[in-house]
Computed example of a mutant assay.
Amino acid sequence: MENPAVQRKTHYEMSFYEILATSVARMGPTPNHIAIIMDGNRRFARAKGLKVMHGHEAGSTVLDGVDEWRKAIGCKELTIYVFSSENFKRTKDEVDNLMELIFRRSEDTLNDVKSGKNTNMCVQFIGNWERSPEKLKNRIANVMEITKDFKPYKLNVALAFTGQRCT
């Protein structure tokens, strides 16, 4: 079902304010690595009167902008914590929907490689993704294999991570 609040753009363009902010950020020291924990998507959806899954979809589209911002400031590595091992305690429907969303976003990554849009970002999945659906595990392995030699940027996607162990 199409999310009424979120339309994924095929190409992300920064706004004037984002360009201004990244220009100011480049004036200082550039971080080598930025890490983001995806949190608050369910609260966002509920506050907007949307289904929970629409909040997760909205959160995933924010990542397009984050990736552009970090490249614009010159940061080479980004880690996003997308699904903790604790998230498996959610309803089966929500877990299945989240796994499907991760699968679709991984497909977007493959399409970006095929189209030549991504030739410079290595994508690695970290965590213990053994409990993930077989089709997602295959997709993850494919994304990592295809992008393993891409440079200079690196995206780490933490899937089924814990606070104790991420690799």
Score class of each variant (00 low, 15 high):
Pro4Asp: 04
Ala5Ser: 13
Gln7Pro: 10
Arg8Ala: 13
Arg8Tyr: 12
Arg8Met: 13
His11Ile: 03
His11Lys: 11
Tyr12Val: 01
Phe16Asn: 01
Ala21Phe: 05
Ala21His: 03
Val24Phe: 00
Arg26Glu: 06
Gly28Pro: 04
Pro29Ala: 13
His33Thr: 00
Ile34Ala: 15
Ile36Glu: 11
Met38Tyr: 06
Met38Gln: 06
Asp39Phe: 14
Arg42Val: 03
Arg43Lys: 15
Phe44Ile: 00
Arg46Thr: 09
Ala47Gln: 12
Met53Ala: 08
Gly55Ala: 10
His56Ala: 03
Glu57Cys: 10
Ala58Glu: 06
Thr61Pro: 00
Leu63Met: 09
Leu63Asn: 07
Val66Trp: 09
Arg70Val: 09
Lys71Met: 04
Lys76Glu: 13
Glu77Arg: 04
Glu77Leu: 04
Val82Thr: 10
Phe88His: 15
Glu94Thr: 11
Leu98Tyr: 01
Met99Tyr: 07
Glu100Asp: 13
Glu100Cys: 11
Ile102Ser: 12
Phe103Thr: 14
Asp112Leu: 01
Asp112Gln: 03
Asn118Phe: 08
Cys122Arg: 05
Cys122Ile: 04
Val123His: 01
Val123Tyr: 01
Gln124Thr: 07
Ile126Asn: 03
Asn128Gly: 06
Glu130Asp: 15
Glu130Thr: 10
Arg131Phe: 05
Ser132Pro: 01
Glu134Pro: 03
Lys135Tyr: 12
Leu136Arg: 06
Lys137Asp: 08
Asn138Gly: 03
Met144Arg: 02
Leu155Val: 08
Val157Arg: 11
Val157Asn: 08
Ala160Cys: 03
